[in-house]
Design a binder for these strands. Structure first.
Lengths: 146, 146
DNA sequence: TTTATTTAATTGATATATCAACTATATTTA
DNA sequence: TAAATATAGTTGATATATCAATTAAATAAA
């Protein structure tokens, strides 16, 4: 069987892309906000626009499982970016609130992220982005159907 | 600032794609080879075609750092897929050899991986693959230049 | 040739991720 | 309504990843 090496496949390119983007984005975040990981930043952005998200829902949005999310929110609570309080409508869930410190970060973070996205997509047309999304969508479908 | 949510960006799609592919590929591998992770399989494939790779070089190929690679190869040695011996030409490096058990796996693995790649890319044209590679290449360049 | 620098790999500390088992609450169904 | 099932979140065990410091050997510079 003449199988191309993993490094010669499109999957290698895809993985390389997301790793380099994450490295790039983390570097730019760390320059301005210390002790803030990309994923923690994303959690803040999500909660800011959707305050009623459950831990499980946030987990899905950032590609983690619920156990990881428990611990991630533990550390964000410990760092005073978030607060947990009971949700009276469903006492299995928490209400997760962004603290004042968290809101401060939410002033600094969006411009950085905006810049990360823009500069990493520089020279790529709207049309190309659509192509990208379409093709990747096919791969996702192939991997998840049935 | 009206910043789209992370889940609405192309980065989310890219990350989703690689995660789903990995999940899909791992499932198919686990059905036939127990106790073998994707990354361990990739290491075997690389070493099979390039027996003189150093740990550091393998690390780069599978997107890990050298400390992770030390430990990954430790476990593969422990599981009897690999053997380390000294490299007389450069005694800082190891010569990493695939054992008989490793070679057995290398009979089973390639067809699985072939199937994983093929079925996850089903319905995608050569041209689309080229587009994909080109566009992702631009993102990588944007993230790594300077 | 001795000394300084670089390189490959390891180690310890720590962070992060994942699985399975569990708790508490809510929802369904008999 | 009581019992069964499903859901949100936690926890412990374990695996995996990352960083910084270290070791040992090779290479470059003095």
């Amino acid at each position: 069987m003449n199988l191309p090496l993993p490094s010669e496949t499109i999957f290698h390119v895809i993985e390389s892309t997301i790793k380099e983007y994450r490295k790039f984005a983390q570097k730019n975040i760390s320059e301005q906000i210390q002790d803030m990981t990309i994923d923690q930043g994303l959690v803040l952005l999500f909660l800011n626009q959707h305050p009623d998200l459950t831990q499980k829902e946030i987990a899905a949005l950032v590609f983690k499982d619920k156990a990881s999310m428990t611990r991630m929110i533990d550390t964000m609570v410990h760092k005073k970016y978030l607060e947990r309080s009971m949700n009276p409508k469903d006492r299995r869930r928490y209400k997760i609130k962004i603290t004042a410190k968290g809101k401060e970060v939410l002033k600094t973070l969006p411009p950085i992220i905006h810049h990360n996205r823009n500069s990493s997509l520089k020279g790529i047309t709207k049309n190309e982005l659509n192509q990208l999304e379409t093709i990747l969508g096919k791969i996702i479908t192939n991997c998840t159907k049935k």
